[in-house]
Design a binder for these strands. Structure first.
Lengths: 242, 242
DNA sequence: ACGTATTTGTTCGTATGTATT
DNA sequence: CAATACATACGAACAAATACG
C-alpha cells in the first residue's frame, strides 16, 4: 500500500495531488505488472472517476501511459519523445488566425513508391500520387511539404487545384477519403542549400523537420515529409499547477 | 444564428462536432466581439457543460482560445505558434522512464544580471545565481541548460549539489521556493562548434533551442536557455477523430 | 474598499456507448 | 455472448478568480 492519502483541504486540486502521487509511483517502478484501472484508482484514493480521469488524461498527454478502451491503461515504452499537440493542419491554423494562405505547387504527378512504400504499407513500385507544395502564409514562404498517397485512394488528386487550402479537404472532396487520424514526429534540422533558397532561410538558419502518417479509417492515406522555417514558427507551452 | 445543429445519432462525439463548428465559426471571423461563455454555448447547442468543456479544452490546447476564471474565454489572436505539452522537467521524464540521469555542473556562481534581467523582471546588474549544467541520460549527453535565478530567491542554490535531479527540486528543498508555472518556447537551431563538441553532435546535426521562464507564485524564479540534441529527442503527436 | 454577479475550475453522482478480452 | 474498461454525456453543486456597481 504505497498510496499517499490526498488532502481535501489543500488548495491543490485533487487531480493534481493524484497526478503527483502517480508520477512518484511510476518513477519508483511500481506498475511493472500493469497500471491500475480507473475504478481501482477511484477506490484506492477515494475520489470520483472524474478526478481519476483528469489525472490520467494528463499522464497520457505526457506520454507516461497509454489508455485504450476495453484494454486499460499501460505504461508507455521508454523513448525520449515528448507528446505534442498535433500540427494537423497548418492551412487551417493560418486560416483560423485570419492570415492569407496559398501554395505553390512544385509537383503533382504519379510515381512509383520508393521510401514511402514502407510507412504507407504498400509494395515498393506500387503507384502513388506525389505532391510537393511550397506553402506561403502572407507573402513569405513558411514550409515545404512532400506528400505520397496511394494512387488507389488518391488518384483523383492529380486533376485537383492545390494552390490553396488543405490537402485533406481536397482529398475528402475529390476522392471521398476522410482523414481520421495519424501521427507525426518533429525534429530540428539544417536545410540543404536548395531548401534554404526555396524557403528563404538565411545562412545559419534552422528548420523543423516533420514526418507524418495520416490514416483514413485505419488505412494509411498519406506519408508526408515537411520542412518548416524555424524563424517563422515555434512551439510554445504554458504550464501551471504542477 | 450560425449555430450548426449537432447530430446525436452520429458516431462522432458531440464534443467533436461542437469543436468542428466552433473552429468553423472562428475561421469565419464570428467572435470578434468576444467568445461565448460555457453557459451560452450550452444553451445554443443544447448540450451539457461537460460537452462544452471538452470542446473548449481542445480549442485551448490548440491555442485558439484562452480561458480564464472569472473572465471568460477570449480568442487568442496570435502568432504562428503551436501549443505544446510542457517539457517541464526533463530529469523527471527520464526518471519516470527509469533511465539513469546525471549532470555535469559547468558553472554554479553568483553573477550580475545581464540579458536575463528583462525576462526575470529585475534590474540589470542585480545579483543572480547562474547555473550551467550538461545533462546526461544514460552515458551520452542530451542537453545543456543555462539558468539564471534571482539571488534574492535562490541564494541557497550556490551551496547545493546539482549533479543529479531536477533544479526545481533543489530549489524547493534548499530555498523553499516551489515553481508553480511558466512557459517555454521551442525552436530549431544549429549548434555552435563548442556546443557541438560538448553535446557530441555530429557535423550537420541540429538541436532544439528552448527558452523558459519559470514562476513561483506569480514571481519570476528562473530564466533558462537550453539546447537539446535533435538526434536523441523528438516530439510526437498522435491525433484522431478530428 | 466592499459586496455581488459572472465565469471558469473542480468534484461529485449516474447512465450509456463502444472496443477489447 | 459476457465481462471488463475506457469514452461520452447528462445533472448538480461549490470554489476561486475576475469584473462591476
Amino acid at each position: 500500500m504505497t498510496v499517499t492519502p490526498l488532502d481535501r483541504r489543500s488548495p491543490v486540486p485533487l487531480w493534481a495531488q493524484l497526478l503527483a502521487d502517480l508520477r512518484r509511483r511510476v518513477a519508483a517502478g511500481e506498475f511493472a505488472d500493469g497500471f491500475p484501472t480507473d475504478e481501482e484508482l477511484r477506490q484506492s484514493y477515494r475520489v470520483s472517476r472524474q478526478t481519476v480521469r483528469e489525472a490520467a488524461r494528463r499522464l497520457q498527454a505526457e506520454g507516461v501511459i497509454v489508455r485504450q478502451r476495453g484494454r486499460g491503461s499501460t505504461l508507455a515504452g521508454s523513448v525520449l519523445e515528448q507528446p505534442l499537440q498535433a500540427l494537423y493542419s497548418l492551412a487551417g491554423r493560418a486560416e483560423d488566425l485570419g492570415l492569407p494562405e496559398h501554395s505553390e505547387v512544385l509537383a503533382q504527378r504519379r510515381e512509383q513508391a520508393g521510401d514511402a512504400a514502407e510507412p504507407l504499407g504498400i509494395e515498393v513500385g506500387a503507384a502513388v500520387v506525389y505532391v510537393e507544395r511550397l506553402r506561403f502564409v502572407g507573402d513569405e514562404p513558411l514550409s515545404l511539404h512532400r506528400s505520397w498517397l496511394p494512387a488507389a485512394l488518391a488518384e483523383g488528386l492529380l486533376g485537383c487545384d492545390l494552390a490553396s487550402g488543405s490537402l485533406y479537404d481536397a482529398l475528402a472532396e475529390t476522392c471521398g477519403v476522410r482523414v481520421t487520424g495519424g501521427w507525426e514526429r518533429i525534429r530540428p534540422g539544417v536545410p540543404t542549400p536548395e531548401l534554404r533558397r526555396l524557403l528563404g532561410v538565411r545562412r545559419g538558419g534552422a528548420v523543423f523537420e516533420v514526418e507524418r502518417l495520416a490514416t483514413a479509417g485505419g488505412v494509411a492515406a498519406e506519408w508526408r515529409e515537411s520542412v518548416i522555417r524555424g524563424d517563422r514558427y515555434s512551439f510554445r507551452a504554458d504550464w501551471s499547477a504542477l
